[in-house]
């Protein structure tokens, strides 16, 4: 078996990112879309940590930490928006959120 190189991690990351991307594009449930975004963020984090490990520099991990913080903030705000929206519209279906339509 070939040793595990950063390229492996990058492929894994790309795959996970694509899964999240597909989730964002395909699903209609807002909560699931948010979870897909979390998946994508995790993919990015894997990337960062992989490179951190490759270059033996801790800054990648620090960036990952920031990403976690941003993800937490995003989750809090996003879920608050979902709640508020649900309270008004009784739905979390993105197809019914067309306020930005012309």
């Amino acid at each position: 078996m070939t040793p595990i190189t950063p390229a492996h991690y990058l492929v894994l990351s790309a795959a996970l990112f694509s899964i999240g991307l597909i989730g964002v594009l395909v699903r209609r449930n807002l909560i699931v879309i948010f979870m897909s975004i979390e998946l994508m963020l995790n993919a990015v984090n894997i990337n960062l940590v992989a490179f951190s490990q490759q270059w033996q520099h801790v800054v990648g991990q620090v960036f990952a930490l920031f990403v976690v913080a941003v993800a937490a903030a995003e989750a809090a705000i996003g879920l608050g928006i979902i709640l508020a929206f649900y309270r008004n519209k009784e739905t979390v279906n993105v197809d019914e959120i067309t306020l930005m339509r012309w």
Binding site: L21, R28, I33
Partner: peptide, 17 residues
């Protein structure tokens, strides 16, 4: 052009992708 402005976030994301 107007037809593109569906108001659906996912469509925009799709276009972006």
């Amino acid at each position: 052009f107007r037809r593109m402005q569906t108001g659906l976030v996912q469509t925009y994301a799709l276009l972006m992708m």
